[in-house]
Simulated scan of single mutants.
Amino acid sequence: MTQLNIVVIGAGVVGLTTALQLLRRGHRVSVIAEHLPGEMHPDYTSPWAGAHWRSMAEPEDTLQRELDARTFEKFMELVHTVGREAGLMTVTATDYFAEKPTGWTVPWFHGLVPEFRMLDKHELLEGTVFGYTYRTFTVNTAVYLKWLQSNVEKHGGVVCRARLANWWDALSIASQASSAAQLQQVVVNCTGNGARYLGGIGDTDVYPTRGQTVLIRSHGLCKTYALHGHDTINYAIPRDDGTVVLGGTYQHHNSNINPDPATAERIIKSATTVFPELINPNTGKVDIICHAVGLRPSRVGGVRLEAETKELKGKPMLLVHNYGHGGQGYQSSWASADKVVQLIEQQLPAIPTRSRL
């Protein structure tokens, strides 16, 4: 296999996972990003995620189902090999619905997840008519992102901080950081919401979906729930560090990063109704750590996973896209990274070998 010099733009969960999989294929990889693990910037989506695996793929969305299924299997493998080192733990999840979903009576992943079963009528919450329970995992995003970056660097990858005006600017920055600039070069675009504004991409199908959450202390909670209302969704996602992420909102085309007090009150009320143990018995309230808002990188038509040939200085350049995951970034990250590897290796024969640009 030909060794390539690959530049990945973006250091969120999708970008770092993609970089790691490319490194494992023997390529030289540089990651260029404005924001890196450890930061909590509004434009850096990945740290703000819940995050856990609860597939929202529609029955007819075969691509998203494939991405979610393969990533679930990879994460469950990681839970048993690295676990808390990467901020991962398994939990029992329960999903409740205020009305029955249209088009299906059992979720597509019922045969994939362990311990799946439909809820009996007496197990449903008041105001709900449908539900199921299963075993899944949760992700401590701050720990996991740093774990990903550490593994990228352990495999020889280079992570650089830079603000890019255009996608091709990443090549000159990477050439300064890498000793492999003479190799054939490929750029992988994992910019999330940034794909709307990055020069040479300008994807106007990308838009933010606002998610408001409340981070609290768990008091021992080790299970998660999601309540799908008529026009809202509430959830609680415990993490391995004794905290719980309560949510949330799915407000499309909303980029307001200021928490709304009324929304926070609704989120807390829902969670404590389902899990009264979240209330501190000494104060009668939940122990709030902080309020947060994240902007999911959504896209009309769903995730963009494709390769295209660009002309740069009169020579062909392979540009591969992996963005637009919305709220599914973590739960489709490993499989979408593998798709990038496949796209590059499939397209490479059509791109003539060339010297440094």
Score class of each variant (00 low, 15 high):
Asp169Trp: 02
Thr209Leu: 08
Ala236His: 03
Thr213Ile: 14
Thr243Lys: 06
Asn254Ser: 08
Gly157Val: 07
Ala181Phe: 08
Val274Phe: 12
Arg161Gln: 14
Asp169Cys: 04
Leu171Met: 15
Val188Ser: 07
Pro276Leu: 09
His291Glu: 15
Val245His: 02
Val186Cys: 05
Glu277Cys: 10
Val188Thr: 09
Lys269Val: 00
Val159Gly: 02
Asp231Ile: 00
Asn258Phe: 04
Thr224Val: 04
Gly200Tyr: 03
Ser178Glu: 13
His252Tyr: 01
Gly192Asn: 03
Thr209Gly: 13
Arg210Val: 01
Ala162Met: 08
Asp287Leu: 12
Thr273Asp: 11
Glu277Asp: 13
Ser255Arg: 09
Val293Thr: 05
Arg266Ala: 14
Pro208Ile: 09
Gly202Trp: 04
Val274Leu: 10
His291Gln: 14
Val187Cys: 02
Cys222Trp: 08
Gln212Asn: 07
Cys222Glu: 14
Ile268Asp: 09
Ala264Phe: 01
Trp168Ile: 12
Ala226Glu: 11
Leu171Gly: 00
Tyr235Asn: 03
Ala165Trp: 03
Asp231Phe: 00
Thr204Gly: 01
Ala162Gln: 10
Tyr197Gly: 07
Tyr225Asp: 07
Ser255His: 08
Ala165His: 15
Gly220Asn: 11
Asp169Leu: 05
Gly194Phe: 00
Leu227Glu: 11
Gly242Trp: 00
Asn256Phe: 00
Ile288Pro: 01
Leu246Ile: 14
Gln251Asn: 08
Ile257Phe: 09
Arg266Lys: 14
Gln212Glu: 15
Gly157Asn: 07
Tyr207Gly: 02
Pro259Ala: 10
Pro259Met: 10
Gly242Leu: 01
Thr204Val: 12
Asn256Cys: 14
Val159Leu: 04
Leu164Asp: 08
Ser218Met: 04
Asp240Phe: 00
Ser179Pro: 00
Gln176Pro: 07
Ala271Leu: 10
Gly247Cys: 07
Asp287Asn: 12
Arg163Ser: 12
Cys222Ala: 14
Asn189Gly: 01
Pro261Glu: 10
Gly194Asn: 06
Ala271Met: 11
His253Tyr: 14
Cys290Gly: 00
Ser172Cys: 10
Thr272Tyr: 06
Leu215Lys: 10
Gly202Ser: 13
Ser179Tyr: 03
His230Gln: 13
Gly248Asp: 06
Arg239Tyr: 00
Ser175Asp: 15
Val206Glu: 03
Gly229Lys: 02
Asn234Phe: 15
Ile288Leu: 02
